[in-house]
């Protein structure tokens, strides 16, 4: 979806509306942003949402591990994994 398109204008307005609506808790706002991110990406090419899921999964696991891991070498390894996966996607597709 292009940022200068009508579709994005409507999409952005709706997400903004949902984000500021008091009905959502902070956690649900984050969930909503995650889902709308998938939707944003999927509107271009649905099968490629898989990439976003992989990125989400790797970063989620990395974040959790970094929060508890004390061993510096292991911490670096988790960080490296996350960077390689995310930059790898970028390098491959861009």
């Amino acid at each position: 979806m292009l940022f200068n398109s009508l579709g994005f204008l409507v999409f952005f307005a709706l997400v903004l509306l949902y984000y500021y609506t008091p009905a959502f808790s902070w956690v649900n706002k984050k969930r909503m942003l995650l889902l709308t991110s998938y939707l944003f990406y999927g509107l271009w090419n649905p099968p490629l949402i898989l990439l976003l899921w992989i990125s989400t999964l790797v970063d989620w696991i990395t974040g959790n591990k970094l929060a508890v891991e004390q061993n510096q070498r292991k911490r670096n390894a988790w960080l490296a994994l996350s960077i390689v996966v995310n930059l790898g996607f970028l390098a491959f597709f861009k």
Binding site: L2, S5, L6, G7, L43, W44, N45, P46
Partner: peptide, 15 residues
Amino acid sequence: RTYAQRLNFALSLPF
């Protein structure tokens, strides 16, 4: 055509 293109087209029609 992508879903985004379909959406843009549908939104542009009234204009």
